[in-house]
Computed example of a mutant assay.
Amino acid sequence: MIVVLGSASMDLTTYVAVAPALGETVMGREFRTVPGGKGANQAIAAARAGGSVAMIGAVGDDSFGEPVRRTLAESGVDVAGLRTVPGPTGTAHIVVDDDGGNSIVVVPSANATITGTEEGDAERIAAADFLLLQLEAPMAAAIAGAEVARANGTKVVLTPAPTQDLPDALLSNVDIIVPNEHEARALSGVDDLDKTIEWLLDRVPVAVVTLGEQGCLYAARGEEQVRVPAFAVTAVDTTAAGDTFVGALAVALGEAKPVVEALTWASAAAALAVQRPGASSSMPERAEIEALVAGEEEGRR
C-alpha cells in the first residue's frame, strides 16, 4: 500500500517553439488543461504502475476540483482522504518548448490548507508500506505525515521539490530522498555530485538522484553506488517525469524488486511519460512499463 500526501492541482499548459524571455511575448501553438500537482501525479503514476494507492490532500470547490478528483479515482487512487475546501483548486502554469523543456509557476490555493494530518489520515499512513511526500503543500503537513509514518514503520520517500530548506524535523524521518540533479545541488550548496551525495547521505539513509538523459544514481549508507542508464527516447514534454519515476519506484520497491531492477522499472515509466504531452495524461500503465523493460533486456542480449 502506498499513501501520497501532497498537492492536487490543475495544470494549465501552453506549448511553444521557444519559451519567452522576461518581457517577451511569443505565439503558442496549443493549450491543454490536465489534472496534475506533484502529489496527484505520484499517486496516479503509482496506481497505473500497479500499486494500491491512497491520496491525502485538498482540492477547491471550483470547476477544477471535481475533474482533478475524478482523474485520480479513474486511475485507481483511493480519494477518501482528498478533501474539498472552499475556494480555488491549486494550479500550475506551465510553458513547454519544442525540446520538451518546461518552466512552471505553481499557485497552491487549496493545497495551502494542508497544514497537518486530519481524521483518518494517521490510520491511512500507518497501514501503508510507503508514504510519498513532496513540497507543493505546506512543510508542516510533510513533517506531520513523516512523523506518523516513522512511528508506525512506514517508509518515507521525499521528493524535495520545489527546492527549499529542509528542517531536521522532516529529514530525520525520511528513508529515501529522490531529487533531480539540480535540486540535489541546490540543497547541498555544492556543484560536485560526489560531495552532494555525501551531503544527502549525512541526512538520510538512501538517496536516488535522477540525472535526466544520464539516467539515475542510487546511493545508500555503507553500500556501493549504483548508476542505471536512461532509456534512449525523444522527449516531447518532461512535465511530471520525476513524479512518474517516484511513483513507479515506490511500486517496484514495494514488490521487493532488487535495486537495479527497481530503478530500471522507474526509469522505463519516466521514459514513456516524457514521450507524451501533459502530466497525469502522460503516465504509463503497468503493461507498457513491462513491455519497455522487456524490450530493452532483449536488445542487450
Rank of each mutant, 00 (worst) to 15 (best):
130 F>T: 10
147 E>L: 09
179 P>Y: 11
141 A>T: 03
184 A>I: 08
241 A>E: 01
191 D>Y: 08
239 T>D: 00
126 A>P: 09
234 T>C: 04
186 A>N: 13
174 V>W: 11
208 V>I: 15
144 A>E: 10
210 T>F: 02
204 V>D: 04
162 P>C: 09
252 A>I: 03
185 R>H: 06
141 A>Q: 01
241 A>H: 10
225 Q>V: 00
138 P>L: 07
137 A>T: 15
208 V>E: 11
244 T>V: 15
194 D>F: 08
212 G>W: 00
219 A>W: 08
190 V>E: 13
149 A>Y: 05
199 W>V: 07
156 V>I: 11
179 P>T: 00
164 Q>R: 15
216 C>Y: 00
253 L>N: 09
214 Q>M: 12
137 A>Q: 13
243 D>P: 10
179 P>A: 04
208 V>Q: 00
160 P>Q: 11
189 G>R: 11
169 A>C: 05
155 K>Q: 15
244 T>L: 02
206 V>G: 04
127 A>H: 05
181 E>D: 14
223 E>F: 03
176 I>T: 04
193 L>Q: 11
195 K>I: 02
136 E>Q: 07
193 L>W: 11
142 A>T: 02
190 V>H: 01
168 D>Q: 13
222 G>E: 06
153 G>H: 10
151 A>V: 06
184 A>H: 12
254 G>H: 00
245 F>Q: 00
124 R>V: 11
214 Q>P: 04
216 C>T: 00
166 L>H: 02
211 L>N: 10
142 A>C: 14
231 F>T: 02
216 C>V: 06
169 A>S: 15
141 A>W: 00
251 V>S: 02
174 V>Q: 00
243 D>T: 06
173 N>E: 12
247 G>S: 06
124 R>N: 03
155 K>S: 13
127 A>N: 13
196 T>L: 10
124 R>K: 15
166 L>N: 04
170 L>I: 06
182 H>T: 15
243 D>K: 08
251 V>W: 06
146 A>I: 10
145 G>H: 05
177 I>P: 02
251 V>I: 05
165 D>R: 14
211 L>Y: 07
240 A>E: 03
229 P>G: 06
180 N>L: 07
214 Q>D: 15
147 E>I: 09
214 Q>E: 15
210 T>E: 05
235 A>W: 04
236 V>D: 09
165 D>W: 09
240 A>R: 07
159 T>Q: 13
197 I>P: 05
200 L>M: 15
209 V>S: 01
178 V>H: 10
235 A>Y: 13
242 G>D: 00
230 A>G: 06
162 P>Y: 03
212 G>C: 12
240 A>S: 14
216 C>K: 10
208 V>A: 09
153 G>Y: 05
197 I>T: 14
190 V>Q: 09
141 A>Y: 07
250 A>T: 10
147 E>M: 12
160 P>L: 07
189 G>P: 01
132 L>W: 12
153 G>P: 08
169 A>W: 09
222 G>H: 07
174 V>K: 08
210 T>A: 10
169 A>R: 14
190 V>G: 03
144 A>T: 05
171 L>M: 14
230 A>Q: 01
239 T>A: 12
205 P>Y: 12
155 K>E: 13
